[in-house]
Amino acid sequence: MKKTFASDNYSGVHPEVMEALLKANTGHAASYGADEYTERAIAQFKVYFGNDIEVFFAYNGTGANVLGLSALSRSFNSIICSDLAHINVDESTAPEKFLGSKLITIPTKDGKIYPEEIQNKIQRVDDQHHPQANVISISQSTEYGTVYTIDEVKAIADVAKKNNLFFHMDGSRISNAAVSLGKDFASFTRDAGVDVLSFGGTKNGMMFGEAIIFFKPEPARYFKYIRKQGMQLHSKMRFISAQFEVLLSNDLWKRNASHSNRMAKLLEKELRSASVKITRPVDANGIFAILPSAIIPKLQKEHYFYVWDEKTFEVRLMCSFDTTEEEIKSFGATLRKLLK
C-alpha cells in the first residue's frame, strides 16, 4: 500500500526505532517490566518530567486512556470532555464499559473545551441521584489538530482544582503539540496542573506502545493491578520500552514531530493555492478542509484520506514522520487537475 494522508497510524516504524527493537531482540530479558530496557526508558521520561513521577507502559491509546481514567474515576462519577474527544468518539464504548462512568460532553468548534463551559457541567454536587463529576479530560493536540496554549491548560487546571476534580490529558499526539508550542513537555502538562497523561508513541514513529504518566502518587497507588486487570501488561515489556528509550533519546520525538508538522504546513499551502477552504487552524500535523464532493473519490484513489463530515464534505488529511515533500506536491497537482 502506498503512503496516504489517512492517518499517522498508517505510517511505518522509524528506522531508529526498528533498530532498537532488533537490538532488544538479542538474548533473554526479564519479563513484565523487570528489565534494563524498561528501567532506562522510565529514566528517560524522568529527564523530561521529573524524578517523582510514576510511569507505566501499555499497548495502545485506548488502553492508556481507559486505564489512566480508571485510576481516577469510579462508577458513580462522570468525566467531562469535548464531544469530539477520542474517549467519546473513537474508543467504541470502552470508557463506559470498563469504568462504568458517564461521559459528559461539551460541543466544540475548535476541538477545545473552555473553563466556563466546564464549570457549567459541574452540577448537583454531592447529590446521590446525579453522576458526580470527578475528571476533566482534554486531548493535546485536539482531534481537530488544534493545540491548547499553556495558559489554556492552566485555566482548565484551575477549574479542576477549584472543584476538587482530576485533570487528565490524552497526549496521543503530544510530541506534535510540544513542537507546535515550542515548549518542553512538562510546561504544558505537569507544570500546568495535569494529573495524569497518556503519552503517545505509536503516531510518532513507534510500532506500538503508549505510556501512562502520573504526576501525583496517590492515583498511581494501585495502578499496577489496574493495568493487569485491563489486559495491558506486556509480558515482553522490553519491546515497548526499547522504543520509548530511543524515541526520547537524541530528540527523535522532536525530529519526527517537527517533520510531520512541517509537512502539514506545506500541505496547507498546496490546498490554499488551489483555493480550497481550510476549516481549522493548522497547529500540528492535521489539516481539515472542504472539498467538492464530486472529486473526493477520485482524489482518494490517488492519495487516500478520510471524510471527516459526510454532510459538509469536510476532510481530514494527516501527515506523518515519513511524509515527503514530493508526496505533498503530487497531492497538490492531482487536486488542481481534478478542480479544473
Rank of each mutant, 00 (worst) to 15 (best):
G332A: 05
A71Y: 06
Q132M: 11
I106F: 08
F288E: 08
G201K: 00
A220I: 11
D8C: 10
K269W: 09
T105P: 00
F214H: 09
V194M: 04
M206I: 01
L21M: 10
S260V: 12
T334F: 09
A71M: 05
H259D: 04
Q132P: 08
L67T: 07
E210F: 10
Q119P: 01
K224D: 15
D191P: 00
G200T: 03
M18I: 01
L338V: 05
F76Y: 15
R190C: 15
A41G: 05
L267Q: 05
F45T: 12
D83N: 08
P15M: 04
I113C: 07
T108E: 04
R173S: 13
T312L: 03
Y304P: 00
K228I: 11
F288G: 08
T62G: 15
F45K: 06
Y148V: 12
T189S: 14
G230M: 15
F321E: 00
L69Y: 00
A85D: 13
D90F: 10
L299K: 03
L99K: 01
Q132C: 07
S249H: 03
K121E: 13
I174Q: 08
A71Q: 00
A264S: 14
K254F: 11
F331Q: 01
L67V: 02
L317M: 14
Q119M: 10
F305R: 02
T142P: 09
G193D: 06
F57M: 10
R227G: 11
S235Q: 13
I122V: 01
G33P: 06
F214N: 11
A186R: 02
A294M: 02
S75A: 15
